[in-house]
Amino acid sequence: MASAPYGVRLLVGAATVAVEETIRLPKTILMYPMTLASQAAQIVMRFQQNLAELVIKGDSTLESIFPPKEENPEWATFDEDSADGIEGVPTELPDGAGGDRRAEGRFALYSVADAALDAGAPAKPAEHSNNSVVEPSVAAELDYPALTLAQLRARLQSLSVDELEALLAYEQATKARAPFETLLANRITRANAK
Score class of each variant (00 low, 15 high):
127 E>C: 02
60 S>P: 01
102 R>V: 11
43 I>K: 03
17 V>F: 06
139 A>C: 09
125 P>V: 12
160 S>D: 07
37 A>G: 00
125 P>W: 06
56 I>K: 03
118 D>A: 14
144 Y>L: 13
187 R>P: 00
19 V>K: 11
124 K>G: 05
107 F>R: 07
186 N>I: 03
172 Q>D: 04
56 I>W: 00
57 K>Y: 01
126 A>S: 15
4 A>I: 06
38 S>D: 01
84 D>I: 13
4 A>N: 07
146 A>N: 14
71 E>F: 04
55 V>D: 01
69 K>G: 07
9 R>I: 06
111 S>Q: 12
133 V>G: 02
88 G>C: 14
172 Q>V: 08
136 P>M: 10
101 R>P: 13
176 A>R: 15
134 V>G: 01
85 G>K: 03
15 A>D: 02
120 G>M: 04
110 Y>R: 13
34 M>R: 02
92 E>N: 10
93 L>W: 14
80 E>Y: 11
180 F>H: 04
58 G>Y: 00
80 E>L: 11
64 S>P: 02
170 Y>E: 06
34 M>T: 05
21 E>R: 07
156 L>P: 06
136 P>C: 08
129 S>G: 11
138 V>F: 02
81 D>K: 13
109 L>S: 09
179 P>T: 07
157 Q>A: 14
66 F>W: 06
88 G>M: 15
10 L>G: 00
4 A>L: 14
183 L>R: 03
187 R>V: 00
95 D>M: 14
34 M>G: 06
104 E>I: 14
23 I>R: 04
144 Y>S: 11
8 V>Q: 05
60 S>D: 11
50 N>Y: 01
24 R>P: 00
188 I>R: 00
54 L>I: 08
9 R>V: 10
93 L>F: 14
34 M>N: 03
165 E>G: 04
77 T>G: 00
29 I>W: 09
158 S>L: 06
88 G>H: 14
97 A>K: 09
85 G>C: 05
51 L>D: 04
50 N>E: 03
165 E>P: 02
170 Y>R: 11
94 P>M: 08
172 Q>L: 12
152 L>E: 08
111 S>A: 15
74 E>L: 13
76 A>Y: 03
8 V>W: 02
131 N>Y: 06
142 L>K: 05
14 A>C: 01
70 E>T: 08
130 N>I: 08
144 Y>Q: 10
17 V>M: 09
180 F>R: 13
115 A>W: 09
109 L>T: 08
147 L>E: 10
165 E>I: 07
52 A>I: 07
13 G>Y: 03
121 A>K: 14
55 V>E: 03
125 P>L: 11
146 A>F: 12
11 L>V: 13
74 E>D: 13
145 P>Y: 07
131 N>P: 00
139 A>Y: 09
161 V>G: 09
